[in-house]
Amino acid sequence: MATKAKLLEAAEAEFGERGYHDGSIVEITRRAGVGLGTFYVYFESKEAVFRALVTHMGHETRAHIARQVEQAPDRLSAERIGMRAFFEFARSHRNLYKIVMESQFVAEDSYRAYYDSFAEGYRRNLQAAVDRGEIRPGDADIRAWSLIGLSVFLGMRYAIWDETADLEPVVDAALDMIERGLSLGPKP
C-alpha cells in the first residue's frame, strides 16, 4: 500500500504542476521512485491514476475536516471549525483546487462523485443537527450544496489566491452569513 500512496502523491505533484494532459506516467514514476512496470501494477492508465487521485483527495479532505470537527459541541461550531479546517487543508494541499477543477473536463463522473460525497455527509450531519434541535428544519440537500459552494469559493479566494489572508475574519463573516443570512430581522 505504501507504493500506491507514493504513486498518488507523485501524481498529485505531477498533475498539480503540469495538468492532466501534459502530465506523464513516466514522470509520476520518476517522482515516486518506482519503475514504470510498478505503475501498471496499481493503475491501468494515466486516466485511472487521475480518477483515483480525485477520489483520494476527496477522502483526505473529508477525513481531515472530520477529525477537526469531531469534538464540536454543536452544528454551528462544527461549521466554524470545519470551514477553517478546509481552508487550512487547501493551503497545505495547493494542488487540490487545480486537480479537482480539471477533473470536470477529464473525468466528469469523478468530479461529480467528489462533490456528491461531500454533500451526502453534509446532508446527514445537517439532518442530525435538526433532529437534535441545534438548527431549524430545512431542505438538507439545498443547505449542503449551499454550504459546499460557500466554502469552495471562499477557500479559492482567501486560501489559494491570497495565501496571506487572515482566515479568521473570513470564517467570522461566513458564519455570520450562515447564522443570520442577509435579513434585517423578522418581518413585521
Rank of each mutant, 00 (worst) to 15 (best):
E17M: 00
L53C: 12
I28Q: 09
E12M: 08
E12D: 08
R30H: 13
R30G: 11
G16M: 09
F43C: 05
E14G: 02
D22Y: 13
H21M: 07
T38N: 10
Y42G: 05
T38F: 04
V54D: 11
F15A: 01
F43R: 04
V54I: 14
A13F: 11
E47D: 15
A13I: 10
R18Q: 12
A13C: 04
S45W: 08
G19F: 12
G23D: 09
V54Y: 13
R18S: 11
M57D: 09
M57G: 07
V34H: 05
G19I: 05
A11K: 05
A52D: 15
A52L: 14
K46C: 06
E44S: 09
E17K: 11
G33I: 07
G35V: 01
V54F: 14
G35E: 08
S45R: 05
E14I: 00
S24W: 05
G58L: 00
G23W: 10
E14N: 07
T55Q: 15
F50P: 02
F50L: 03
E47Y: 12
F39I: 02
S24L: 04
R51E: 15
F50I: 02
Y40P: 03
E27R: 13
H21I: 03
I28R: 08
E17G: 00
A48Y: 06
G33Y: 11
I25Q: 07
R51A: 14
R30T: 10
Y40S: 04
E44T: 04
L36D: 05
Y40E: 08
H56L: 00
R51G: 06
E14V: 05
A13K: 15
I28G: 03
R51L: 07
H21E: 14
E17F: 00
F39D: 03
H56E: 15
T38G: 03
V49T: 12
G37I: 00
A11N: 06
F15V: 03
G37W: 02
G35D: 10
G58K: 00
E14L: 01
G19Q: 13
S45I: 00
G33R: 10
S45L: 06
R51F: 06
E27M: 10
G37D: 02
Y20C: 09
I25T: 11
A11Q: 07
T38D: 07
T38M: 07
E27T: 06
H56S: 13
F15R: 01
G35T: 00
V26F: 13
A48C: 06
V41Y: 15
